[in-house]
Design a protein around this nucleic acid. Sequence first.
DNA 1: TAGATTGTTAATCGATTAACAATC
DNA 2: TAGATTGTTAATCGATTAACAATC
Lengths: 213, 213
Amino acid sequence: MENKEISNAVIKRLPRYHRYLGDLMAQGVERISSQELSIRMNVTASQIRQDLNNFGGFGQQGYGYNVAYLYQEIAKILGLDRENSMVIIGCGNFGRALANYQNFENRGFVTKAIFDVNPDKVGNRVRNIPVLYIDELAKFLQNNDIKIAVLTIPREEAVKVTEVLVDNGIKAIWNFAHVDLDVPSDVVVENVHLSESLMQLSYRIAEAAKNKK
Amino acid sequence: MENKEISNAVIKRLPRYHRYLGDLMAQGVERISSQELSIRMNVTASQIRQDLNNFGGFGQQGYGYNVAYLYQEIAKILGLDRENSMVIIGCGNFGRALANYQNFENRGFVTKAIFDVNPDKVGNRVRNIPVLYIDELAKFLQNNDIKIAVLTIPREEAVKVTEVLVDNGIKAIWNFAHVDLDVPSDVVVENVHLSESLMQLSYRIAEAAKNKK
DNA sequence: TAGATTGTTAATCGATTAACAATC
DNA sequence: TAGATTGTTAATCGATTAACAATC
């Protein structure tokens, strides 16, 4: 009820905590202090404690944090304790690459179908996931409980398909199209703008070159 | 010389300005005020003016900004006015997807070669880009002026290959491997952690579900 | 108990927004 | 010139870091 409104900065850091804790578990580490973890992750111990305390007290004074327990709690916070069914829109190189990525499935992100406009691709399977014709998307969404739609299609198509998705109750979109989608406030969009990421890298190269002079 | 140290928040927004200005150009818009642009981009006009003034005064009082000019200036700031040659390490689904992405080339990011451990893949071509054996990487870097190395390989391999890259003078890494690379301070790394992006989306889904109750 | 380390409050730092004088 | 809008300074807001009392 009383929602403290977690800041975006914190949310972005959660998956990284999850990863480091998973690595620690794999290394057989049982407990860790915010201090030790801060050194490994190259952040401040204060930040770690502040971040975690947004969600509750997971540690114990004088002891630190139990790695396995904290790992599990963060997984819960991130919603990794349930299945997130997905559809991928666009069976191009990217769509197929994502469909083939076993790792997502391990974390509960299961792709149920891939959709494409190209009739030649329809009927194929990618790692046992059926490729369906894009016109069947609306019906598919009505008949299946899909949590996430992944958009790996060009911008114009992405804008059009988003309407179909929203009209058919999709509440989460993972958007690889290079466009800002306009959706109702109860639909969450996570953008992956690869060309923007590449441009940031390019900026830093240019900056480094300038500083050398 | 006097480097004002541009904040990360600003750098992240630059590509988005670039995109919106490109769209405006395509729409035939010649001039735009920070106010108009702020409405389209859903940010404050103040932020736009502050951001741009980190790099110089590109506007004119009483007029606003010339779209084509500002577009070009931001492109320069982002280093898009020169060629950024790349190599892609890993000819899996992702490596091939990136190699096939024509859009990068249009912005000056040209892939010169793809490297892989699998001898079966070596000798093939992806859109005319040769696939070479990973053992030839060091020699290739010595004989070619490569700006960016793109890592689309598993984490353990990524860590190993990074050593080869750094030893052979690579100063920029676009890292798709789910690991934090340890590099000297003059090497810039831009991470694309897809599973972290997906987890953030998952968090927001979980959060929305909680708030509904 | 003494030592360690959390949870949390207070202080600092940085980024965003507001305001307005400068100027086209 | 009058109106519009920038460039920039000042005010506010939020996030990070420091400090320390609580407590295991």
